[in-house]
């Protein structure tokens, strides 16, 4: 295998992991930016999405099952997220630390529920045959490079979601209200914006995207009750690196974390790579505490 092919392969892997992180972190970043709450049960929305994909494929087998599973997982996770916001997060909105604890409790409940319903071992979602190919190169400097279709599919889905959310936030009236509430909640409310409804909508949207990410996770490995946990820590890292609530920052930070891990794994093994990733994040935050994109810059707030 050509050396540059190997390098490009690792970069591609990094970007593909990054696209998972961005989908997992998007909801966290949006709701932290708006409500200053940290949802510890966010990882379980990924898990829910995975199980919903499994169930959908039982009902709708065949090549198009996965395409049905995506909206089902989105709506299912958004619905559960909405209930979580209404029953737990909104009621604790003035007590952020309690929200942390309460949502962690919800996370444990959801994991146990999954264990009781589906068993601890996990279920398998088989990727449809149209995603079963790989693009491989056999000649030139790229000889030996293989790009699995599933990974390309992940990239495409992440790009579509990111583009969709960016359009929603930047081009629609709802997005304008989200940005207004984000910048000055009392004033936005005094101008007629129903800030409560904005909170609820954004929270449900974020958990819905996590549910979608769960479908993608199901294509890569078994869906277990704790599948969300392995993605939620990097997702938190991404949110912090990105600048707590910025869409662009979250995307850049996902790419940083994904590429850093993939490239460092060329030289060291996986667990050392994890350590080095944390060291990298600590150093980065030391140098730039506001993250990649500073949402609350003083330059604009005299």
């Amino acid at each position: 295998m050509h050396e540059s092919a190997f390098l490009i392969g690792q970069v591609f892997n990094g970007i593909s992991v990054a696209s998972l992180f961005v989908m997992a972190a998007l909801g966290l970043a949006l709701s932290f930016g708006l409500m200053r709450v940290i949802n510890m049960a966010h990882g379980e929305m990924l898990m829910l999405g995975g199980y919903l994909a499994y169930l959908t494929l039982l009902v709708v087998p065949g090549p198009l099952g996965i395409l049905v599973a995506m909206p089902v997982a989105f709506l299912g996770a958004a619905f559960l997220g909405g209930i979580l916001e209404l029953t737990v997060i909104h009621r604790l909105s003035t007590r952020p630390l309690d929200t942390l604890l309460a949502t962690w409790g919800v996370s444990l409940i959801l994991q146990q529920a999954a264990r009781n319903l589906f068993g601890a071992i996990g279920v398998q979602v088989v990727a449809p045959t149209w995603l079963d190919h790989t693009i491989s190169f056999s000649t030139g400097i790229l000889s030996g490079l293989t790009l699995p279709d599933t990974r390309l599919f992940i990239l495409l889905v992440a790009a579509l979601i990111l583009g969709g959310v960016a359009l929603l936030i930047n081009k629609t009236r709802l997005g304008l209200y989200v940005r207004a509430v984000n910048q000055d909640r009392p004033t936005a409310a005094a101008l007629g914006v129903n800030a409560r409804l904005v909170d609820l909508t954004v929270f449900a949207l974020g958990t819905g995207v996590a549910g979608l990410a769960g479908v993608i996770l199901a294509l890569l490995g078994p869906v277990t009750p704790t599948v969300g946990q392995s993605y939620i820590v990097p997702a938190f890292l991404v949110v912090i690196l990105g600048g707590l609530g910025s869409l662009v920052g979250t995307t850049i930070a996902s790419l940083m974390v994904g590429l850093f891990t993939a490239l460092i794994e060329i030289y060291v093994d996986v667990s050392v790579a994890q350590v080095l990733l944390l060291v990298f994040v600590i150093l980065f935050i030391q140098i730039r505490p506001q993250g990649v994109i500073a949402v609350r810059s003083r330059a604009l707030e005299g």
């Binding site: 304008l176 940005r179 207004a180 004033t187 101008l191 007629g192 914006v193 604009l300």
Partner: peptide, 23 residues
């Protein structure tokens, strides 16, 4: 309501600020 200290949305454009008022 025109609050004390104006409280315009700093990261929104003038046009966007006015549009929020339509809420």
């Amino acid at each position: 309501f025109v609050p004390q200290g104006r409280h315009v949305f700093p990261h929104l454009t003038v046009m966007e600020n006015l549009t929020v008022g339509l809420a």
